[in-house]
Design a binder for these strands. Structure first.
Lengths: 226, 226
DNA sequence: CCTGGCTCTCAGGCTGCTCTAAGGTTTGAC
DNA sequence: GTCAAACCTTAGAGCAGCCTGAGAGCCAGG
């Protein structure tokens, strides 16, 4: 994936948002904010962050529900839950609901940063993961794809692109989003590099006979589906 | 492998982690910590330790499951399991699941150290261990490789490098990881010593006719595979 | 002090990956 | 049917990343 990890901060307290945003931005992360559960869900869908810092207590949809919905929609983004001192039950619920770690308020920024680092590191080196979709496999250890029993070598960019698709199957990824995630720049001018790489991937993973997996959605982007 | 053995300590009790970490660090080991099963698995993949000190009781994925997953992914790292006094069943389960030794809580640090030494010693000179991959063999006793029936002498660095590859076949090892494990320093400036040694190994183990075993993964590192 | 083996540096060469560019094809609106 | 926009395809230039060969520095043993 591209350079700086993306972090979504969801908290209704503007003070906490500001502190966390500034601190994380200073560390080089790209930060997006949301103040409600609904907004958090939207921004998560829009930006596909690598990590969500999520307050449990939120007006409307609370943190537990946000977690639940993200997970039930197949999103495996890392979630760091923030809980008030005595909400021990929340913490347990949070982990059960699908959060990856939690932090009790009040916390120092350094504490937060330590957890953030730990979670992102875990994500950067996923545990011997083999992603699967239909008859397509992506072996993260070997950086190798496989369809049926045919091993497929991938270049770095091809691998990054396929990884993005495999992590968000059946979800239409806009061109902008893909460009940001795989190429790491807000491309203003024209470039058809994305189309070129989609083609490279297609020719590699969709051998003559096999059905198409990466579909074009005209005017929107691409989607991985049968 | 390089100088000081790496030990991963997985326990959710910060007190135990601290005591064990300090003690082992004082003995000259390089220690990495984790507080949950997930984190333990991740750090194991990331740092490739020589030994894991693993508590059975962990929130989320427990010690038995961690062991199971490490073993099922082909990791043969030494595992020292920590169990509470009355969890006799755990101890049995632990050994069956793939742990190499166990220790009943509470224990003195000296007891722990003794087991650690024993496991690492056993691991350092595994009685007649011969690693195999494809038609390549690495005799750990003789520090000698063999392909087909041709014996191959290796220098120390060549041996360390090949050992790392043989212990993690089909896994792409990043340049940074290799540098840390074989050369033991966080190299700041530029150096192509790794490339040079890969070449030495290649010319020794990939005689003219034989197919390539150490493959370059451009932009990532190297991988041992057919 | 010399020798031989091992480690590492350096400079130049080469490969294959990335991206551009230019023309071709499909799609959907009218 | 016509047209423009969106997307596809192909070829190739440029260059970062890796490879290669030669040799300097170092240390242990004689």
């Amino acid at each position: 994936m591209s350079e700086a990890p993306r972090i979504l901060v969801v908290d209704d307290d503007p003070k906490i948002r500001t502190v966390v945003r500034r601190g994380l931005a200073y560390e080089g992360y790209r930060v997006v904010e949301a103040s409600t559960g609904e907004e958090g869900l939207d921004k998560a869908r829009e930006h596909l962050p690598d990590l969500v810092v999520l307050d449990v207590m939120l007006p409307g949809i609370d943190g537990l529900e946000v977690t639940r919905r993200l997970r039930s929609s197949g999103d495996e983004v890392a979630i760091l839950m923030l809980t008030a001192r005595d909400e021990v039950k929340d913490r347990v619920d949070g982990l059960e609901t699908g959060a990856d770690d939690y932090l009790v308020k009040p916390f120092s920024f350094e504490e937060l940063l330590a957890r953030v680092h730990a979670l992102l590191r875990r994500r950067a080196t996923p545990a011997g993961e083999v992603l699967r979709f239909a008859d397509l496999e992506l072996d993260v250890d070997a950086r190798e794809a496989r369809r049926g029993d045919r091993a497929i070598e991938l270049t770095t960019t091809e691998y990054n692109l396929l990884l993005l698709f495999m992590r968000h199957p059946r979800k239409v990824l806009t061109r902008d989003l893909i460009m940001e995630h795989v190429w790491d720049y807000d491309f203003e001018g024209e470039s058809n590099v994305l189309e070129v790489y989609v083609r490279y991937l297609r020719t590699k993973i969709e051998g003559a006979d096999r059905p198409r997996l990466i579909h074009t959605v005209r005017g929107a982007g691409y989607v991985l589906k049968e």
